[in-house]
Computed example of a mutant assay.
Amino acid sequence: MARNTERRTLLSDAAVRVLSHQGSRGLTYRAIDAEAGVPTGTASNYFGSRDAIIAAILTRISERLQPDPDAVQPAADAPGIETLAAYLRDILHRLTADRDAALALFELRLDATRRPSVAEALSMWRREGLMADVDFTETAGLPADRADIVLFHYALDGLLLDQLTVPIDDDADPDAAATTLARRILGH
């Protein structure tokens, strides 16, 4: 079977959905094939191992969660706490808009506690994401350093998990929470 980018993307998206809906134990070649609507055996032709599936999932999630350049540009044009708060809200919106990707990431984090290969792949992916956020923040002249960005990651992970699962406060406004986080972490 010819390997093509569209088919790989279809299978990768199916793997994200399977992981999000069924968890790590449900992430099988057969489940990916069924979710993608392709003949049995197709996923195994594209991904030779479970590690290859995990790598494809992480790559696809990265692609799906890329910020819109039009949303990022204003941050570079008007650095300040409110602009950083807007950037945090944009991150939160992207993650909640792609619920499957966000839940798949949480599933991978849980799986990483049991599988060293998943831990290694996910750790590298997350560190690269952190460094990209730090680089963006510095380049844009936003008022945060690496330690602040790490705190934002911790806080947004918790806020996102809360929004996607069982909210502690049904009336909470995630945008207001992200804005408050920016102000408080940066001391304003």
Rank of each mutant, 00 (worst) to 15 (best):
H21G: 00
H21M: 03
Q22H: 15
G23Q: 02
G23E: 05
G23C: 06
G23S: 03
S24G: 13
S24C: 05
G26A: 05
G26R: 01
G26S: 07
T28S: 08
Y29F: 07
Y29V: 03
A31D: 07
I32R: 02
I32T: 02
D33W: 00
D33R: 02
A34V: 07
A34W: 00
A34E: 10
E35F: 01
E35C: 04
A36I: 01
G37Q: 09
G37E: 10
G37P: 05
G37T: 02
V38T: 10
V38F: 03
P39G: 07
P39M: 01
P39D: 05
T40N: 08
T40G: 09
T40A: 10
G41N: 09
G41M: 09
T42V: 08
T42F: 08
S44G: 08
S44Q: 13
N45R: 09
N45Q: 12
N45V: 06
Y46Q: 04
F47T: 00
G48C: 01
S49K: 06
S49I: 05
R50F: 07
A52C: 14
A52N: 15
A52Q: 15
I54K: 03
A55Y: 01
A55L: 10
A56N: 03
A56V: 01
I57F: 03
L58E: 01
L58I: 03
L58M: 01
T59Y: 09
R60D: 11
I61Y: 06
S62T: 07
S62Y: 02
S62W: 00
E63I: 08
E63P: 03
E63D: 14
R64G: 01
L65N: 08
L65P: 01
L65E: 09
Q66E: 13
Q66A: 13
Q66C: 04
P67L: 06
D68H: 15
D68P: 08
P69M: 08
P69I: 04
D70Y: 15
D70Q: 12
D70R: 10
D70M: 10
D70V: 00
D70F: 15
V72K: 14
Q73P: 06
Q73V: 14
Q73L: 13
P74T: 12
P74D: 15
A75K: 07
A76L: 08
D77K: 06
D77N: 03
A78P: 00
A78C: 08
A78K: 12
A78G: 02
A78I: 13
P79G: 14
P79H: 08
G80H: 06
G80C: 06
E82D: 15
E82H: 12
T83W: 04
T83Q: 07
L84M: 10
L84H: 05
A85F: 04
A85N: 10
A85T: 11
A85K: 09
A86K: 08
Y87C: 13
Y87S: 13
Y87I: 11
L88K: 02
L88I: 04
R89V: 09
R89D: 12
R89H: 09
R89N: 11
R89C: 11
D90Y: 13
D90G: 11
I91P: 02
L92R: 00
R94T: 11
L95P: 01
L95F: 10
